[in-house]
Amino acid sequence: MEPPRVVLVMGVSGSGKSTVGSLLATELGWKFYDADDYHPEENRKKMGKGIPLNDQDRIPWLCNLHDILLRNISSGQSVVLACSALKKIYRNILIRGEGATTQGYDEPGEKGFPELKPLVVYLNGSFEVISGRLAKRKGHFMPPELLQSQFDTLEPPSAPENFLSLNVDRSVSEIIYFIVDNIKIK
Rank of each mutant, 00 (worst) to 15 (best):
V6I: 15
G97P: 13
S165E: 11
P114S: 06
E115F: 00
L69K: 09
A159V: 09
R71E: 15
L164M: 14
T102W: 03
I73K: 02
N72T: 02
P118R: 00
E27G: 01
V180K: 14
K49Q: 15
N64G: 12
Y105N: 10
L146Y: 04
F32T: 00
G48Q: 07
F163S: 03
S84P: 10
E155L: 04
Y122V: 00
V79H: 00
M10T: 15
K111R: 13
D106Q: 10
D152A: 12
I73N: 01
Y90Q: 12
G97C: 12
D37P: 06
N54M: 07
L134I: 05
G16W: 06
E98R: 15
D37C: 05
S171P: 08
E110M: 12
Q103A: 13
P157C: 03
D169N: 13
G132E: 10
S22M: 11
S74C: 06
R96G: 12
S173Y: 02
Y122S: 01
G109F: 04
A100C: 08
M142H: 07
P52F: 10
N64S: 14
G14A: 05
A135N: 10
R58S: 14
L23Y: 03
F163L: 01
G76N: 07
F32N: 00
L65Y: 11
K136E: 08
G112D: 09
T101G: 14
E110I: 13
P60L: 06
S131Q: 14
S15P: 01
Y177Q: 15
S74R: 12
S84F: 11
S13M: 13
V180D: 02
S15K: 01
W61G: 13
A82K: 09
R71H: 14
D57R: 10
E174C: 04
G21L: 01
K186Y: 15
N72G: 15
K49M: 14
G48V: 05
L24E: 04
T26P: 00
D34P: 08
N124T: 05
K17W: 03
V172A: 06
T153S: 04
N72V: 01
L119C: 00
S131K: 12
R137W: 06
D37H: 14
S18H: 08
L119D: 01
L146C: 02
I176C: 09
R44K: 15
I93P: 07
G132F: 06
D152P: 04
K117A: 02
P156Q: 03
E41V: 10
D169G: 12
S13E: 04
N92Y: 11
L146R: 05
K46H: 07
D34K: 09
R44I: 15
L81I: 13
V6H: 07
